[in-house]
């Protein structure tokens, strides 16, 4: 099967001297859960936004399932942004309908079942939920799409350990061998046992792309410990 995501010589600068993403080339296969790891400001969100098509690269090329970024690739990508774009005044039911209208690959039944398991009432407005539950609802919406690529930007930032566990298990339970999940985070130790592979980014550049167990085998330490070593100031 062809590679899912191909990136060639990708660059993006918000001002002339600072490259947010600096000449990145990488190819990602299907069927993996991959961590996109790097300190704040290393270019993770910029990279993700270019894959979604929300930002235009200054240079380079992105292909998803062999196609350039456009309406076809957007239909294949499910994106959880680092900040919410949903209206808090809308009911959960209203948001479910919105997703169903908007994405042909969205399964309302699957989302409803996950919400029911959590005991979240779909008649209530989004803004009445706790921060942890808001994050869960947004993840459920994204994971209820049958996409080829899931881009989760900091899905576990700022939630309590129980919510974090729920989010990680939801990602595992929705694992699909045809699709790849890319998760950006700086909370590595919480997430590394869920990951197949990790990408390290620093100052817009790709530092490393390898498997979690490769790092553990080669260096005798966790990805978290290795990351701290590589990025020690």
């Amino acid at each position: 099967m062809s590679d899912l995501l191909e990136i060639q010589g990708l660059s993006k600068a918000y001002d002339v001297r600072n490259h947010a993403v600096d000449n990145i080339s990488i190819t990602l296969p299907r069927g993996k859960i991959i961590g996109l790891l790097g300190p704040n400001g290393s270019g993770k969100t910029t990279l993700i936004k270019m894959i979604t098509g929300l930002l235009k690269p200054d240079a380079g090329e992105i292909r998803i399932c062999g196609e350039e970024i456009g309406p076809q690739t957007k239909a294949r990508v499910a994106y959880l942004p680092d900040r919410t774009y949903l209206s808090g005044g809308e009911t959960i039911e209203g948001i479910l309908n919105y997703f169903q209208d908007f994405y042909s690959d969205f399964s309302k039944e699957s989302a409803e079942e996950m919400l029911k398991n959590l005991g979240i009432d779909t008649d209530v407005k989004l803004k009445t939920l706790s921060k942890g539950n808001k994050e869960k609802v947004q993840l459920i919406l994204v994971m209820s799409r049958k996409a080829d690529m899931y881009l989760l930007d900091e899905p576990i930032a700022g939630v309590d350990p129980a919510a974090r566990d729920y989010i990680l298990r939801t990602i595992i339970n929705n694992y699909n061998p045809e699709a790849t999940v890319l998760i950006s985070t700086h909370l590595i130790s919480d997430i590394e046992q869920v990951l197949d592979e990790v990408i390290f980014m620093r100052r817009g550049k790709l530092v490393l792309y390898t498997s979690v167990d490769n790092i553990r085998e080669k260096h005798g330490k966790s990805v978290d410990a290795y990351f701290r070593e590589v990025f020690a100031c």
Partner: peptide
Amino acid sequence: VRELAAEAAVNPNT
């Protein structure tokens, strides 16, 4: 594999 991966909270491929 999927059930055990979820139980152990590890990657299904692992």
